[in-house]
């Protein structure tokens, strides 16, 4: 008969948040998402033609891509397209953001949201063929051939992406700040200029960045809507992929990936910096 109480079994604290296997799945997800991209980037530095056996480190394929006139033209066109659509989409989204957030719910609000988000709800291919036929009619009737058509098509689907962070930012901003400004003798314009605008600026920049990235990424709409000679970088790439793979495509993809990472990082920094 022991005269002391037996030692308790070894115990670990019980973690209510833990679920078995979930942690491994999350890491698996992370690896699954990044491994293909990292391997792709890795082979862009391959000396040889192969995208599967690595021989030696080199920037050869970056040089080849940079010297390729087709790539150069496509890159310039893509950047121009993205820049223009971003400007138009961000202006429209900023105005819409101001109109839909600094007020009580209003008649027609659901309609406005539905229209602004429409490009997100329709499969891209449908938008693409629709835009193709619509522009076809306009081109036939007016005889105009213009880069503007492509810019307009991109602006449409950039608006909802630019609108998202702008609206989120405005909704986080207490309406009181405008009231304070008005209380301190600022006219509506001055209140916008000195209070609302500087406070919403991070949202506008974030929205512009998303719009830029989204325009730069687009394949389907550019593929179908672009006029003769208007080859964007993704359209050039999809043509290249049909011909067989060389590390040149890896190199271009890696650069695109890098640009996206930089822009999206900025976006995240601007959007989540203030929130704890």
């Amino acid at each position: 008969m022991p005269d002391t109480v037996a030692l308790p079994p070894r115990s670990r604290p019980f973690d209510v948040r833990y679920m078995p296997g979930f942690t491994s799945m999350a890491w698996l997800c992370l690896i699954g998402l990044y491994a293909p991209l990292l391997i792709m980037a890795f082979f862009s530095f391959n000396e040889s033609r192969s995208v599967t056996t690595f021989t030696d480190f080199s920037f050869r394929w970056y040089q080849i891509a940079a010297d390729n006139a087709g790539v150069k033209d496509a890159t310039i066109l893509s950047l121009k397209l993205a820049a223009l659509s971003t400007v138009f989409a961000t202006i429209a989204a900023t105005m819409a953001g101001l109109a839909t957030t600094r007020t009580r719910s209003f008649k027609g609000q659901a309609f406005v949201f539905a229209v602004i988000n429409q490009p997100l709800m329709i499969p891209e291919i449908v938008t693409a063929v629709g835009t193709l036929t619509f522009f076809g009619i306009i081109k036939q009737v007016t005889g105009i051939q213009s880069f503007g058509f492509l810019v307009l098509a991109h602006t449409v689907f950039c608006i909802p992406f630019a609108y998202m962070p702008i609206r989120a930012r405005l909704e986080d901003m207490d309406l009181t700040f405008e009231h304070v400004a008005a209380d301190l003798y600022a006219s509506p314009w001055k209140a916008f200029r000195y209070v609302t605008f500087p406070m919403m600026l991070p949202g506008i920049i974030a929205g512009a960045m998303l719009a830029f990235v989204i325009s730069l990424d687009d394949v389907i709409i550019s593929l179908l809507v672009a006029g003769a000679g208007e080859t964007t970088l993704p359209v050039w790439m999809i043509g290249q992929l049909r011909r067989g793979l060389t590390p040149e495509v890896n190199a271009i993809s890696t650069v695109l990936l890098g640009v996206t990472i930089i822009f999206v990082s900025f976006f995240f920094f601007l959007t989540f910096r203030k929130r704890k």
Partner: peptide, 20 residues
């Protein structure tokens, strides 16, 4: 303020759907 966004999307986003 919302009219530019509505006009662009209405014209180039929704109109094409009517056409198809």
């Amino acid at each position: 303020l919302v009219s530019p966004a509505l006009a662009i999307i209405g014209l180039v986003g929704i109109m094409p759907l009517a056409i198809i």
